[in-house]
Simulated scan of single mutants.
Amino acid sequence: MSYEDLDVWKRSVRLSVTLYQETGQLKDFGFRDQLTRSGLSVPSNIAEGYERGSDAEIARFLTIAKGSAGELRTQLLIGIQAGFLAPEKATQWADETNQLGRMLGALIQRHKKK
């Protein structure tokens, strides 16, 4: 199976693209840069792990992706509180990162068992 077939990869790519598209007008460049980097890190680390091939490497990079999802969720919640992000959109994105984290957790366990 290719990482491109994984729902978690597809969804994290969509979220990353959305973040780039929806936050382009943010005036706080540091916050925007950190937010988009965290979002980009999730599908990128999924891809890197699967390209390395071994279950141990896949699990390691999925763990990094899961950490990036948590980082992104935190940044989204901070963005709401700081008034940088519209609460409705950012809450939806935060919920999606939470779901992605659960999906990644299940994949990590699967690859650790092999």
Score class of each variant (00 low, 15 high):
Leu104Gln: 06
Arg37Ala: 06
Thr91Ile: 09
Ala90Asn: 06
Ile46Arg: 03
Ser44Cys: 13
Leu72Asn: 04
Gly49Thr: 09
Glu51Gln: 10
Pro87Arg: 15
Gly105Arg: 03
Glu88Arg: 15
Ala56Ser: 05
Leu77His: 12
Ala69Lys: 01
Arg73Gln: 08
Ala106Gln: 14
Arg32Phe: 13
Pro43Ser: 03
Lys89His: 06
Ile80Ser: 08
Ala86Thr: 12
Gly70Leu: 03
Ile46Lys: 02
Leu72Arg: 06
Glu71Ala: 13
Asp95Gly: 03
Leu76Met: 05
Phe31Lys: 08
Ala69Asp: 01
Asn45Arg: 04
Lys89Trp: 02
Leu77Ala: 13
Phe29Asn: 12
Glu48Gln: 07
Ala69Gln: 01
Ser41His: 04
Asp28Leu: 00
Tyr50Pro: 08
Glu57Ala: 03
Leu40Ala: 15
Ile108Cys: 09
Asn98Leu: 13
Ile64Leu: 08
Ile58Thr: 04
Arg37Tyr: 09
Asp55Pro: 04
Ala82Thr: 14
Arg102Met: 07
Gly30Cys: 12
Arg110Gln: 11
Ser41Cys: 11
Glu96Thr: 13
Gly101Ile: 08
Gly83His: 06
Ser44Met: 11
Ile64Glu: 10
Ala90Met: 01
Gly39Val: 14
Ser68Trp: 00
Ile46His: 01
Gly70Met: 04
Asp33Asn: 14
Pro43Glu: 01
Lys27Ser: 07
Ile108Leu: 12
Arg110His: 10
Gly79Val: 12
His111Lys: 14
Thr63Tyr: 04
Thr91Asp: 06
Arg32Asn: 06
Arg110Val: 10
Asn45Trp: 05
